[in-house]
Simulated scan of single mutants.
Amino acid sequence: MGIIGWIVLGLLAGLIAKAIMPGKDPGGIIITMILGVVGAIIGGFIGNAIFGGGLSTFFSIRTWLLAILGSIILLGIYRLVTGNRARA
């Protein structure tokens, strides 16, 4: 999968993660999309470590589930780190 595929996958995974975990996030949609791209990379590392294979093709269900899982994990960590600053 090329770099544009990674970016598109990450952007969409970030939006899906935001839909699964709604709430107020500091930074807005742009930060959520960036977290999605980085989360897709993290999901690939998780898949490679656990299953022996990370992200493969764009239309693979395993690729999408791992990218969304990585995005959810990263979004949760981001909320824990920045949660107090959002309320202030």
Rank of each mutant, 00 (worst) to 15 (best):
F59G: 01
N84F: 14
V81H: 00
I3W: 08
G83E: 03
G23D: 03
I77H: 04
I46M: 12
L55E: 04
I77Q: 02
V8W: 01
L69A: 03
G36V: 13
F45R: 06
G43M: 07
I68K: 00
I68G: 02
I46A: 08
A88H: 10
T32A: 12
I29M: 08
P22R: 01
L9R: 04
L75N: 13
L75R: 11
G54Y: 02
L55G: 05
Y78M: 08
G23L: 06
M21W: 06
R87D: 12
G39V: 10
R62L: 12
G76V: 13
V37K: 00
A19N: 09
M33T: 09
P22W: 01
L35T: 09
I34N: 05
G36M: 13
V37L: 11
V81A: 05
L80Q: 10
I42W: 01
S60H: 01
D25K: 15
A17N: 13
G39W: 00
L12D: 00
R79T: 14
F45H: 10
V81K: 00
A40M: 08
G47P: 07
G76R: 10
I42T: 09
S56L: 01
G43R: 00
A86M: 14
I61S: 11
R85H: 14
G14E: 08
P26L: 15
S71F: 04
M33G: 11
G83D: 05
V8C: 01
G36L: 10
W64T: 12
T32C: 12
I42H: 08
V8K: 07
R85K: 15
I16Q: 01
A86Q: 13
I30M: 12
W6S: 11
I72V: 14
K24S: 14
I77F: 12
L9H: 04
K18H: 10
G83C: 07
G28C: 07
G27H: 08
G83R: 04
G47I: 06
S60E: 07
I20Y: 07
I34H: 10
K18R: 14
G70V: 08
I30V: 15
F59L: 13
A19H: 02
P26M: 15
G27M: 11
I73P: 05
I68N: 03
A88P: 03
T57R: 10
Y78C: 02
L9T: 02
A19G: 11
L69M: 07
N84A: 15
M33A: 13
V81I: 08
R62T: 14
I20A: 06
K24T: 14
M33H: 04
R85L: 14
G28E: 06
T82N: 11
I20K: 07
I42G: 00
I68L: 07
N84Y: 14
I73S: 00
I20H: 07
G23R: 04
S60C: 03
R79L: 11
W6I: 09
G70K: 05
I34G: 11
S60P: 00
A19E: 10
Y78H: 05
